[in-house]
């Protein structure tokens, strides 16, 4: 029984890393049909596969097209498994996140990968999309009472908008965790603007998102041990 589950987890991992959406879907369906735990399959199958994708990207073996295809394969499995995840507050990361690309910027690939990471982890994601007017971020964070705000900008020309949003959100709710990412940012700048986290440049932002899948899995494992 345990061996069979390991086999399915390996199928999910490989299906993701080899961007084979059909293979992921078949394995995900088998997880359900054979009565295994959907949440385990997401974290130790799909997310583990994406962690490996992050490693391959960092090692210049995979580039953006491959990462996007892997993400599609992951989504194929996630759609099957997610409705069957039993909500167990003791082991799931909870919370809500508002995410979007700032006004003037239509580059949303990195943002979508960060979004994927939050979805895997079970967050409620409010995706504002791309080219989002600055006031919309503030409104959405307040109206949804979200814990996280993630903003991205791929261009020097648009990143300044983030500071305005951070200032306005902080004024109204100092506890919101704010992460910023995108090619033109620096850690120094993100810190000066009052953000809690940042992605150093385009590939690093992508990697940061993929790396966070890993750290969220750790959180899950810690929570599982504790619970």
């Amino acid at each position: 029984m345990a061996d069979r589950f390991q086999e399915l987890l390996e199928e999910l991992r490989q299906g993701v890393t080899e961007y084979d959406e059909e293979r992921v879907k078949v394995a995900a369906q088998a997880v359900l049909d054979e009565g295994f735990d959907a949440y385990d399959a997401v974290m130790n199958g799909l997310a583990a596969g994406m962690e490996e994708v992050g490693r391959l990207f960092g090692a210049n073996e995979y580039f953006v097209p491959e990462v996007l295809m892997c993400a599609d394969a992951l989504y194929g499995g996630l759609e099957i498994l997610r409705p069957h995840i039993e909500v167990d507050p003791s082991r799931q990361v909870k919370g809500a996140v508002v995410i979007g690309t700032v006004e003037g910027d239509v580059h949303d690939i990195g943002k979508n990968l960060v979004k994927l990471m939050f979805e895997i982890a079970g967050f409620t994601v409010h995706d504002l999309g791309r080219d989002v007017p600055l006031e919309k971020f503030v409104e959405e964070v307040l109206s949804t009472d979200s814990d996280f705000l993630c903003m991205s900008a791929m261009m020097t020309t648009t990143m300044g908008g983030m500071k305005q949003v951070i200032d306005q959100v902080r004024q109204k709710n100092p506890n919101v965790k704010i992460m910023v990412g995108g090619a033109p940012l620096t850690g120094d700048l993100a810190q000066r603007w009052g953000a809690d986290g940042y992605g150093k440049d385009a590939p690093n932002a992508l990697q940061e998102a993929l790396r966070m899948v890993g750290s969220l899995r750790e959180m899950h494992q810690e929570a599982a041990k504790g619970g």
């Binding site: 006004e103 003037g104 910027d105 239509v106 080219d131 261009m155 020309t157 648009t158 300044g160 908008g161």
Partner: peptide
């Protein structure tokens, strides 16, 4: 294109 005519800062046009 959106040229952000009502924006204060300098934003480059984007494809909508």
């Amino acid at each position: 294109l959106n040229t952000y005519a009502s924006s204060d800062g300098i934003l480059y046009p984007t494809v909508q």
